[in-house]
Design a protein around this nucleic acid. Sequence first.
DNA 1: TTTGTTTAGGTCCACTTGACCATAAGTTGT
DNA 2: ACAACTTATGGTCAAGTGGACCTAAACAAA
Lengths: 225, 225
Amino acid sequence: MTVDLVILTVRQDRLRVLLIERGNQPYLGRPALPGGFVRHGETLDETALRELSEETGLDGRKLHLEQLHVYSDPDRDPRGRVVTVAYLALGPDMPLPVAGTDATAARWEPISSALTDGMSLAFDHAAILRDGLERARSQLEHTTVAAAFCPEPFTVGDLRHIYEAVWGFKLDPSNFRRKVTRTAGFLEPTGERRFPETGRPANLYRRGPASLLIPPLLRSGEVSS
Amino acid sequence: MTVDLVILTVRQDRLRVLLIERGNQPYLGRPALPGGFVRHGETLDETALRELSEETGLDGRKLHLEQLHVYSDPDRDPRGRVVTVAYLALGPDMPLPVAGTDATAARWEPISSALTDGMSLAFDHAAILRDGLERARSQLEHTTVAAAFCPEPFTVGDLRHIYEAVWGFKLDPSNFRRKVTRTAGFLEPTGERRFPETGRPANLYRRGPASLLIPPLLRSGEVSS
DNA sequence: TTTGTTTAGGTCCACTTGACCATAAGTTGT
DNA sequence: ACAACTTATGGTCAAGTGGACCTAAACAAA
């Protein structure tokens, strides 16, 4: 029994997933999601946090972490029967992780290229990644987890860039601002401002206590380009 | 590794869960969710369908079935390390199931009494049931699964009774009708009518092809009594 | 000072929804 | 035959939301 991690972040305005290069058989040298076997006496959450730290050097306590799905096809692993529990982790842009014991390299791969046919991830990791991506996109509609992608403090524009990167299309800045600022408990003003190289300074916010977005912010209203 | 099932139905206008009485140690004689061990070479979906048929005599192909969550606390089973994958099954009112091999009795227990402190389900099944109930309530907001509770053909009133039983409060009949009939693909008219003992006859419908409810039907607008 | 860029905030209209009302179409009781 | 009852169906109205679009504010760079 294993845990596999779909770790997503937004870096340079692109949604990226953390992939490692496998250092063991099977699928030696192929890109894969980080993960590993559940140890004796561990809960799955503990396994996920441990793998996060071991294989990537990330501190899972700063990330949003949730169970995604269980994959149990008897033929999914050539070594034999291995059931894997996939976790979805969302976090702000983080320092480039170091290669761990089982992995020879780790990198933040843009989602678009990670899911192209040429990439051919190990095991059924392409399917797991697709499910994780869809879950993340859906979560942005109904919850405030998008803020988990932003290092604090952040601006409304930062938050909008998260939505645009995850959903893959532009949002109207004005309507987006109206929506998130009127949702009680989503954003907490710090009173400070950020002065970018170009454009008007933006108010800074911290994550508020709200976790649900009611009414939801639906993907339906997409804008061209 | 086991699969446990939260099987919900609406019977006599009450939301009910299928509970068995345990025929083995541990927790002998205590009420529990149906479930059992995953067999060699089985996917979890296959295990869920098999247990459904073995322990309850129900045909899982007629039910809505989805993965709920994995419970992995090392101490959740006194026999040792048993990780369980919980499934949520929703279906129309069905014939009273027969007792299976591991269960001495099976019954449709109203949710309200199944979750009272006095009941004390085996293992962590009370927590699993609570999670399943919350998932079902949430699914009714965003999807058309409520129709899975209705034997076809059904009326708008039947469907409303499902929502009322699952959510635990009354809905405005007129507004509910407007919502579900205007959602393309939710209901397909059969052209027939049903003549109840009392009241005006109601149009009959079948389940339509739509699975998502956009925009959602939120729980916020509850009506007294 | 002008230009460019991004933030902040406003308007307008279409649509949705909750509250409420009115009527329709059956059955049952007298 | 008629009233009473019950549930289904459909309509109105006001408040709120969201998409499209516009204007001004506030900074840096030219």
